[in-house]
């Protein structure tokens, strides 16, 4: 626990001490700010819609969630593995789990700070006389942080597969994108398959089961039916926390396997 905290602080500081953190922060905030500005114009000042769209409702949010974690994961895993600091961390008197969890918490905090810009917009709207739905805004922010954690853990897992930074980032990107889009495309595939296999037992038992499984994994769906409408559902918290637990566990095992291979 102590080790996790020490690593967390170091990693968070490391993100802000290196240019990458600032570049990502600048680009993401710029894009997000522009998005909010344009949307505010387009909706003729519908503050609630604008804030919800900036936190989980719009394409930009998910695009950032697919792009940013791979880059952060690349920096935290592949680059450290290349410069040897990962060897340093893994021979320090902290467990591998503490190292991975510390890194994950730091990256998630970084993304949380990034999404923190949206509530700040809300405050500005408030000062201008509008009245945002604060429950929905804060719940959305919490959901955004949790979703960031999920993608971050997936990114770390994928980035651990390669010690080459660029390849690690690419793998993490593919993993995040796949995770985001698989349920949608999978659902369409299943619909097509159901049409083809009409009447067979496969279509009646297996396919619906697959469909419900895919829907259960669907991040977008989970996000839209809870956080976005301002509902704080413990089942949703569990959903957004249990995946990271699994992914981080696998990441630790992968790190270990890497050492076995040498």
């Amino acid at each position: 626990m102590r080790g996790t905290l020490v690593i967390y602080r170091r990693e968070l500081a490391g993100l802000f001490l290196a240019p990458l953190g600032w570049v990502l922060l600048f680009l993401a905030l710029f894009a997000n700010g522009l998005f909010v500005y344009l949307l505010l114009d387009a909706t003729r000042g519908d503050v609630g819609t604008v804030l919800r769209s900036a936190l989980g409702g719009g394409t930009l949010f998910w695009a950032l969630l697919v792009f940013l974690p791979p880059l952060l994961a690349m920096r935290m895993m592949a680059e450290e593995s290349r410069t040897g600091t990962l060897e340093y961390l893994l021979t320090a008197p902290v467990s591998d789990g503490a190292v991975v969890v510390g890194k994950w918490l730091a990256a998630t905090t970084f993304l949380g700070l990034l999404w923190g810009a949206v509530p700040v917009y809300g405050v500005l709207f408030q000062l201008q006389g509008a009245s945002p739905d604060w429950g929905a805004v804060l719940a959305s922010w919490l959901g955004a942080v949790l979703a960031s954690g999920l993608f971050m853990s997936l990114g770390l897992l994928a980035a651990t597969l390669s010690a080459t930074p660029l390849l690690a980032a690419f793998l993490a990107f593919v993993a995040c994108l796949g995770w985001l889009l698989l349920p949608t495309f999978g659902g369409q595939l299943l619909t097509a398959a159901t049409g083809l296999l009409q009447g067979t037992s496969l279509a009646e038992v297996a396919l619906p089961f697959l469909r419900s499984s895919l829907e259960g994994m669907d991040v977008l769906r989970h996000f839209h039916y809870s956080w976005r409408i301002g509902v704080l559902d413990t089942a949703e918290v569990a959903f957004f926390l249990s995946w990271p637990v699994l992914f981080l566990f696998i990441t630790v095992r992968l790190l270990e396997a890497r050492r076995w291979r040498g």
């Binding site: 490391g14 001490l17 290196a18 410069t83 040897g84 990962l86 060897e87 340093y88």
Partner: peptide, 11 residues
């Protein structure tokens, strides 16, 4: 333990 590459956080 001091590895050959002397891994330190340069920043």
């Amino acid at each position: 333990y001091l590895p050959e590459a002397v891994p330190l956080y340069r920043e």
